[in-house]
């Protein structure tokens, strides 16, 4: 059961798609095609992201991360976090293991928040997609608004966590692997 549990959502969704296929074949096959194509897309995007994550974990010494993104890294650290998040590829949930690896290496809490925020909204390919799909005015307005949105979330969450709670979060990042 313990081995099946992580796959529960997948099994339920797959069963529902099979059921949908029986009830409504065109809808069911549309769902299956969407799933297969996004899975292929993921398998294509993810290998380099995880290879870089592995190299980071083994090669980059803690001191280096602390110097660039740690407590004393100031504006430069924030900017670096923003750029790293914006340059990245993959949906938001891919950033979770990456953020945890950064925490293990001693990156500052607010920089982790900026990294997650930038990953979710200001990614370069995403902005380009948005500009072409939704128009210049819509895309640029949202881009201009998303930067303060990231900062507000970072600021509020930075205040909401006490020293002990942050320490517990870093402890959790150590364990999660």
């Amino acid at each position: 059961m313990k081995r099946i549990k992580p796959y529960l959502l997948f099994l339920i969704a797959a069963a529902l798609i099979a059921l949908l296929y029986i009830i409504n074949p065109p809808m069911g096959s549309k769902a299956a095609v969407t799933v297969l194509s996004s899975f292929k897309e993921m398998l294509f995007i993810l290998p380099p992201v995880f290879i870089l994550l592995g190299l980071l974990d083994i090669w980059v010494p803690r001191e280096t991360m602390v110097r660039f993104m740690g407590e004393g890294s100031g504006l430069k650290g924030a900017l670096l976090s923003f750029l790293l998040g914006s340059a990245a590829a993959g949906p938001l949930y891919v950033v979770f293991p990456i953020a945890a690896a950064f925490m293990r290496k001693g990156a500052k809490f607010t920089n982790i928040l900026i990294l997650i925020g930038a990953w979710s909204t200001t990614k370069i390919p995403m902005v380009l997609f948005e500009l072409s799909a939704m128009g210049l005015k819509f895309g640029l307005t949202r881009l201009a608004l998303n930067i303060p949105v990231i900062l507000i979330i970072t600021f509020v969450m930075g205040r909401a966590f006490s020293e002990e709670e942050r320490a517990a979060l870093y402890e959790r990042a150590e364990q999660v692997d």
Binding site: P6, L9, F10, A13, I17, T34, V35, Y93, V94
Partner: peptide, 20 residues
């Protein structure tokens, strides 16, 4: 490997939702 099960689950449910 750690995020693979959840990723599979998410991709599959998104596909289902988009079809519905």
């Amino acid at each position: 490997q750690n995020i693979l099960p959840q990723m599979l689950g998410m991709i599959t449910s998104i596909g289902l939702l988009l079809a519905l």
